[in-house]
Amino acid sequence: MNIREYYQKTAKACFCVAWISLLLAIIFFVCHLLQLFKGDLLIFVIPIIIFSVLHFFYFRTYDKRVEKLGDKPMQTSGQLLSIDHVLVVFMPAPTLRMLLFDSKGLLLGEVRDQNMRWFMWLIPNVVSLLLPKRFILLDSDGQVRAKYHTRAGLTNSMTIYNADDEIIGGYRENWKDSLIKIKGIIYKGNQSEWIAVESKANLYSLQLKTIDKKNVASFQEGWMPVEWAKRFELNTPIITFSSIITEQERVIVLGFLAAVLHHRDH
């Protein structure tokens, strides 16, 4: 998948939701005419119609983005753990499906729930947040590069494994602090503390530095170069890695972001 295909799939989903919602509103209207139910019709129909119109607007927005990208061939990229700037796009999913693109719109890989099933759409977010999760990091060829396991409960604590199931790091949160903000420690496989994290819960901007104040990575949204904005929405999150960190350290950073973003924007 590339960024064009992402927009095409999202546009199609929004289009289907818009028409299904409109059909549901029509069914309510017909049932009211046939006196199959009594009550104020507008209470039922108006919210559904607004929902339908909004999704039709989203459909047109994504459809226009596809047109702007044109028909130029776009391939995947094999630079998942070597490129410095990674753009994050969230696919519609019951838990986490986080697509990773380079600035040219080429798919680098994704972080997704290993146990994603259809019935998970039926689980309320409030309940799903408390359940343990098993995420996997896939490259553009679909190969597993890492595994991320979170514990049940209110915190986002995580253990990070490589493709061979060896522990290479993790993230620990203090549950008292994590109720109002993101605060914890990212550590490496030998349990040594690597990065102290403290941020607002909304996480619009974050600078990750090691315990000895070396820049590792940053996460931000709301700004990007003009050339990138031709392919991505303006508020698309951007991960910027320092050129000095290793592939394994990049895997750990991606795991931390999966831990704190796993119920955002999908």
Rank of each mutant, 00 (worst) to 15 (best):
residue 102 D to P: 01
residue 54 L to G: 06
residue 53 V to Q: 07
residue 166 E to F: 08
residue 251 V to P: 00
residue 40 D to R: 08
residue 136 I to Q: 13
residue 141 D to N: 13
residue 137 L to R: 08
residue 34 L to C: 11
residue 208 L to N: 07
residue 89 V to C: 01
residue 232 F to I: 04
residue 62 Y to E: 09
residue 230 K to E: 09
residue 247 E to N: 13
residue 193 E to I: 00
residue 122 L to A: 14
residue 180 I to E: 09
residue 78 G to Q: 13
residue 158 M to W: 06
residue 161 Y to N: 05
residue 146 A to P: 02
residue 185 I to W: 13
residue 66 V to N: 05
residue 163 A to M: 08
residue 233 E to V: 02
residue 173 E to L: 01
residue 15 F to S: 05
residue 227 E to C: 01
residue 67 E to C: 03
residue 252 I to E: 06
residue 59 F to G: 04
residue 70 G to N: 08
residue 63 D to L: 00
residue 233 E to M: 06
residue 261 L to N: 15
residue 172 R to D: 09
residue 131 L to G: 07
residue 13 A to K: 15
residue 131 L to Y: 14
residue 151 R to D: 09
residue 82 S to M: 10
residue 153 G to V: 04
residue 131 L to W: 15
residue 82 S to I: 14
residue 262 H to Y: 13
residue 27 I to K: 09
residue 206 L to A: 11
residue 24 L to G: 13
residue 85 H to N: 14
residue 193 E to T: 10
residue 262 H to R: 13
residue 24 L to Q: 09
residue 47 P to C: 03
residue 105 G to K: 02
residue 241 F to V: 06
residue 206 L to H: 12
residue 73 P to Y: 12
residue 79 Q to P: 00
residue 114 Q to P: 00
residue 7 Y to M: 03
residue 182 I to A: 10
residue 9 K to F: 05
residue 238 I to Y: 05
residue 250 R to T: 04
residue 35 Q to H: 14
residue 243 S to C: 03
residue 65 R to T: 00
residue 78 G to S: 13
residue 99 L to N: 14
residue 247 E to M: 10
residue 14 C to T: 04
residue 61 T to N: 06
residue 25 A to L: 07
residue 225 P to T: 12
residue 87 L to A: 02
residue 35 Q to D: 14
residue 65 R to E: 03
residue 215 N to L: 11
residue 214 K to T: 04
residue 181 K to T: 02
residue 223 W to Q: 10
residue 193 E to Q: 12
residue 99 L to G: 06
residue 250 R to I: 11
residue 123 I to Y: 14
residue 86 V to G: 04
residue 180 I to G: 02
residue 196 A to S: 15
residue 189 G to S: 07
residue 143 Q to C: 02
residue 140 S to Q: 05
residue 199 S to A: 15
residue 56 F to H: 14
residue 70 G to D: 04
residue 33 L to C: 07
residue 74 M to G: 01
residue 174 N to R: 12
residue 251 V to I: 15
residue 26 I to Q: 10
residue 261 L to K: 15
residue 124 P to F: 15
residue 119 F to A: 03
residue 78 G to F: 07
residue 11 A to K: 08
residue 94 P to D: 04
residue 149 H to R: 12
residue 222 G to R: 12
residue 153 G to N: 11
residue 73 P to T: 01
residue 140 S to V: 01
residue 28 F to G: 01
